[in-house]
């Protein structure tokens, strides 16, 4: 097989913000992959979402390195500020909040990704400023 399925799904995720049933059906026909298998793959990877997401996706790093450097405070603050729990989307559909295993910014902990872009050495003040930018 020449086309890499995971790259195809990633493109859809990037363009549409999630992988809809309709998109899955299209991929299934185009690449001759059973829909059930496709669903299995799309739900295996943390970065693939099968439900509509907020405009921006925040991924807080949950590694021990971040946890040892006030990572929990950052998580608590984001939940309070956005008025949602991890795993949910804000009412105005602006932000979806997730926690990831590690984003590889352990030397600049605590850290998070906003739409894939790393923000590091986070403080509550810094997060307030970042949220305002989006």
């Amino acid at each position: 097989m020449d086309k890499i399925l995971i790259n195809v799904l990633k493109e859809v995720q990037d363009n549409d913000g999630y992988i809809s049933e309709k998109a899955m059906k299209n991929i299934s026909v185009k690449y001759n992959v059973p829909l059930a298998k496709l669903y299995g793959v799309a739900t295996f990877y943390a970065m693939f979402k099968i439900e509509k997401q907020g405009e921006h996706i925040i991924e807080i790093c949950g590694s021990p390195s971040c946890m040892l450097n006030n990572g929990q405070k950052i998580e608590d603050f984001l939940e309070k500020e956005l008025k949602i729990e991890v795993g949910k989307t804000t009412k105005n559909k602006k932000f979806s909040l997730y926690k990831t295993s590690c984003i590889g910014c352990c030397d600049e902990a605590p850290a998070m990704l906003m739409d894939g872009k790393p923000y590091t050495n986070l403080t509550i003040e810094k997060i307030k400023k970042i949220l305002k930018k989006y």
Binding site: I4, I6, N7, K10, Y45, A46, M47, F48, T100, S101
Partner: peptide
């Protein structure tokens, strides 16, 4: 050389 874009699976 193709880049495979991982999607968050340890």
């Amino acid at each position: 050389i193709e880049i495979i874009r991982g999607a968050g699976a340890y």
